[in-house]
Design a protein around this nucleic acid. Structure first.
Ligand SMILES: [Mn+2]
Ligand SMILES: [Mn+2]
Ligand SMILES: [Zn+2]
Ligand SMILES: [Zn+2]
Lengths: 135, 135
DNA sequence: CTTTTTGATAAGAATGGTTCTAAATTATTA
DNA sequence: TAATAATTTAGAACCATTCTTATCAAAAAG
């Protein structure tokens, strides 16, 4: 087995079809946060239905996470290969990755507050360029 | 001015119509996290369009926040009267409020990482009952 | 090697939450 | 009051996502 992406898929009980390999590589190698439609435009040989189906599978397997709350009304996707949080520039809708924060105390607080076992978390902050005029 | 809710609306440059007063009171006095449709069912005298329009205004003015990422695919709304974060039970879709966490270091980290001025943040954790069987 | 079964992909139709439109009310101003 | 502006409303339209159904491909069975 020379293809590490093939390994990743098989470890997650997903058959390594060419579409899945292509999509997984796309998500792993792009630091953008594309919508299904954007991915389909970059990979026109994979049908839009398959993009949606495959991303759904990847989300189930926690290979990919959904970013919503973007003001374009569309669902954005992000490879979940390294834990990080997002800062969204509300003027440009740019989604910026950041990782200079340890979520462990937050997870602990959430478990203490609710008694639930935390399986996932999502931290999104919204901001604007400080030099930009208000309104 | 005896009605404090009327004050709140006027302080936010919103005319205090009866629909807005009713909706603001509804959001303030309910600790649930309803969808527009749920609110409309509880307040059938206010049209669904007005529920959407008014919630959008309230979100602009930061009186209300949107909760998305719930697996019912619908947008939920929450009064923003006190800062808190959410823990979502992914088996029941219950949205639990929690406030035992200070977001100041996170906000500081985000500003340091991006240079943006943070205006809003959204922290959602997802969990399951620890006694429930897996899958 | 067939044959059979299972799962994946594809194209397009359907869905439904949300937004838009245009008309009717209501509030404000002169 | 009349004139103007803002809000509300019902229903139409939108469109991102999901569903349907038909093909296709890979794996198991024989
Ligand atoms: Mn990424
Ligand atoms: Mn609340
Ligand atoms: Zn990211
Ligand atoms: Zn809440």
């Amino acid at each position: 087995m020379l293809n590490p992406l093939k390994n990743v898929l098989q470890e997650h009980q997903l058959k390594a079809t060419s579409q899945r390999l292509t999509l997984l590589e796309y998500m792993m190698t792009h630091d953008t946060h594309p919508t299904a439609e954007m991915i389909h435009q970059d990979l026109p040989n994979i049908s839009l239905a398959t993009v949606y189906n495959t991303l759904e599978k990847f989300v189930e397997k926690k290979l990919v996470v959904i970013i919503d709350g973007i003001s374009d009304g569309k669902r954005h996707y992000d490879a979940a290969d390294h834990p990080h949080y997002h800062v969204i520039n509300t003027r440009t809708n740019e989604i910026i990755d950041a990782a200079n924060y340890d979520p462990a105390p937050l997870i602990k607080a959430a478990q203490a507050a609710t008694g639930l076992k935390i399986t996932e978390y999502k931290i999104d902050l919204y901001g604007v360029d400080p030099d930009s005029k208000p309104e």
